[in-house]
Amino acid sequence: MTDSKTRARGADKRRRLMAATARVLHQQGVERTTIADIAHAAEVPVGNVYYYFKTKDELIRAALSEHADHLARLTGELDRLPDPLERLKALVGAWVGQRDVAARYGCPTGTLAVELDKRAEGGIDAEAGDLIRSLLDWVERQFRELGLPGPGDLAITFVGAYQGMSLLANALRDPDIMTREGDRLIRWLDSLPESR
């Protein structure tokens, strides 16, 4: 096998491990997840995990990187829409589209941030906060483009509404909460003075 094929297989295995880590941590939480759980989900022998990630903290960072990549892809797609109000509404649509997952496991980033904050080890909790900050920054830019006063505060209200509806949908195991609150968030966006 050529070196390029070996590197490609290694990169694929690492990628599968990163995706599996993000998925399993979301579903089971940091403390309940084992290296074996991640290896099984990635369809990789357990020993191979340590070749790519030496510690559980490295795996957690890989999950955060996976979430950051997902957010970058999503906001990149939304940025193709010409109107910032439509971008925000499309983001709500994406959130509501994940209502069944949210009802079962909560928001992937929000639940991970809360769990990591309780660990208080290694500064990874701050990295999760940075990921939420990048979402807030993107949302704030949309409100700024709309010419609304207090775009940072509006971004907090908007993202806070999402985190709240995710938490309630999860706690009550009711995906319809995401639908109803998503509709309310759209109505709120439409009621803003400059968005009419």
Rank of each mutant, 00 (worst) to 15 (best):
P149D: 14
L131C: 09
A155D: 13
L148F: 03
T157I: 01
W138A: 06
L146S: 13
R133C: 07
T157Q: 14
E140H: 02
Q142E: 14
R133T: 10
F158I: 02
L131M: 03
R144S: 14
L131P: 02
Q142R: 02
D153T: 01
I132V: 12
L135R: 07
A155C: 10
F158A: 08
G129E: 09
D153K: 05
L148H: 12
F158C: 02
E145W: 00
F143G: 04
S134D: 11
T157H: 02
L135D: 05
L136K: 05
F158N: 04
G150W: 10
Q142D: 07
D153F: 12
A155L: 08
P151A: 15
G129M: 08
E140V: 00
G152H: 13
D137W: 10
E145K: 00
Q142S: 06
S134T: 04
P151T: 11
P151G: 15
R144Q: 13
L135E: 13
P151V: 08
L136M: 11
W138I: 00
E145Q: 04
L154V: 00
L148C: 09
W138Q: 06
I156L: 14
D153P: 00
G129S: 05
T157S: 14
W138L: 06
R141A: 04
D153W: 13
R141H: 13
L135P: 11
G129K: 09
I132H: 15
D137Y: 11
F143Q: 09
P149N: 10
R141W: 00
A155V: 02
L154Q: 03
I156T: 08
A155R: 03
L146D: 08
R144G: 03
D153V: 01
E145M: 01
G147L: 07
R133E: 10
A155I: 06
F143L: 07
D130N: 15
V139H: 08
G152V: 00
L148P: 12
R144F: 02
L146T: 01
V139A: 09
D130V: 03
T157A: 13
D130S: 15
L154W: 10
P149L: 05
E145A: 03
G152Q: 12
L146H: 04
A155F: 07
G147M: 06
R133D: 14
A155G: 08
G150Q: 05
E140G: 03
L154N: 05
G150F: 11
G150A: 09
V139P: 03
G152F: 13
D137N: 08
D130L: 13
L135N: 07
R144M: 06
L136P: 15
L131V: 01
L146N: 02
R133V: 04
Q142G: 10
V139W: 04
L135H: 04
I156Y: 15
L146C: 11
I132Y: 15
S134Y: 05
R144E: 14
S134N: 03
G152Y: 10
E145R: 00
G152S: 06
W138M: 04
L135V: 09
Q142I: 00
R141M: 03
L146A: 15
